[in-house]
Amino acid sequence: MLNILSGFIGLVALILMIPAALPFLGGLNWLFVPIALFGAFIGLMSSKKGGQNFCLIVAAFGALRLFLGGGIF
């Protein structure tokens, strides 16, 4: 059950990150990366690791976007 919840949190974070991929909206990732990391923490408590890995990939995508935009753009 926690794996499904983790995957759902990761999916919500990924959907919220779509507008943050546009120029001048990259700073929104400061809000969405912690959501994905919270989903990974929830997935850590599950016996299956699919949701946790998905959340970590979403968080890595957001962190990469922050890095490329200099943390603001």
Rank of each mutant, 00 (worst) to 15 (best):
L14P: 01
A20F: 10
A59C: 01
P19I: 15
I35A: 08
G50S: 13
F41D: 06
L28W: 14
F32C: 08
F54K: 04
I42T: 00
S47M: 08
A63F: 07
C55A: 04
G50H: 12
F24H: 08
R65S: 09
I18A: 13
A20K: 09
G7T: 04
V12M: 07
W30H: 15
G50K: 06
K48S: 12
C55G: 01
F32P: 00
L56C: 05
F41N: 05
F24Y: 14
L22P: 02
L11I: 07
I4G: 04
G7F: 00
F24T: 15
L68K: 12
I57K: 01
N3G: 06
L22G: 11
F32T: 09
G39S: 11
L44N: 06
G51R: 01
P19D: 09
I42P: 04
L25Q: 12
L22H: 15
L22K: 15
M45T: 07
P34H: 05
W30T: 09
L68S: 14
G27R: 01
G69H: 08
L25T: 15
I4H: 05
I18M: 14
G7K: 05
L14I: 00
I57C: 06
S47C: 10
I42S: 02
F54S: 00
A63I: 11
A40K: 01
C55M: 01
F54L: 12
F41W: 13
M1T: 10
I72W: 15
Q52Y: 03
S6R: 04
L68F: 13
F38R: 04
G69R: 09
S47D: 11
A60P: 08
G51L: 03
M17D: 05
F38L: 07
L44S: 07
L22C: 11
I4A: 11
G39Y: 02
V33Q: 03
L44G: 08
F61I: 15
L25N: 12
L5F: 01
F38I: 08
S47W: 14
W30K: 10
F61V: 11
L64V: 14
G39Q: 02
M1W: 05
A21L: 13
N53T: 12
G51D: 02
G71E: 05
L64Q: 06
S46Q: 12
L37I: 10
L56V: 07
F38P: 03
P19T: 14
G10C: 03
L11H: 00
P23N: 10
F54V: 05
L5W: 03
I18Q: 12
S47K: 14
N3E: 14
L16I: 07
A59H: 01
G7Q: 02
L66D: 00
N53L: 10
K48E: 12
L28S: 11
A21K: 13
L25R: 13
L64S: 11
L5P: 01
K48C: 02
F38C: 00
G10T: 06
I57Q: 01
G62S: 10
V12A: 10
G51V: 05
S6A: 15
